[in-house]
Amino acid sequence: MSEHIVPIKIYLSIWLTLMVLTGVTIWVAYYDLKQFSVIVALSIAVFKALLVVLYFMHVRYSSRLTKVIIAAGVFWLIILIALTFSDYWTRNWQAAF
């Protein structure tokens, strides 16, 4: 429960980074990167989310227990996506026998 005071400079630079990355997302959208366009857009989004969670939500300065709970949340999201796609990716498989 220790209070960690984050200097305002960090908040501002994180905010600025988020803004720049939003700009990058828009800029990239004008180029046709074929199958990579989704990957690029999602990578930028994940990185931005990471900044928000670590700094704005103070997880970087939190106890290990908090970090474990956050990691569990991410892991549960992976379960949701992985098992949902176990359906979508195999729907068109031909019967082997």
Binding site: L83, S86, D87, Y88, W89, T90, R91, W93
Partner: peptide, 10 residues
């Protein structure tokens, strides 16, 4: 209409 393979896993 879920994939049969996903059905087997589930």
């Amino acid at each position: 209409s879920q994939s049969v393979y996903a059905g087997m896993v589930f």
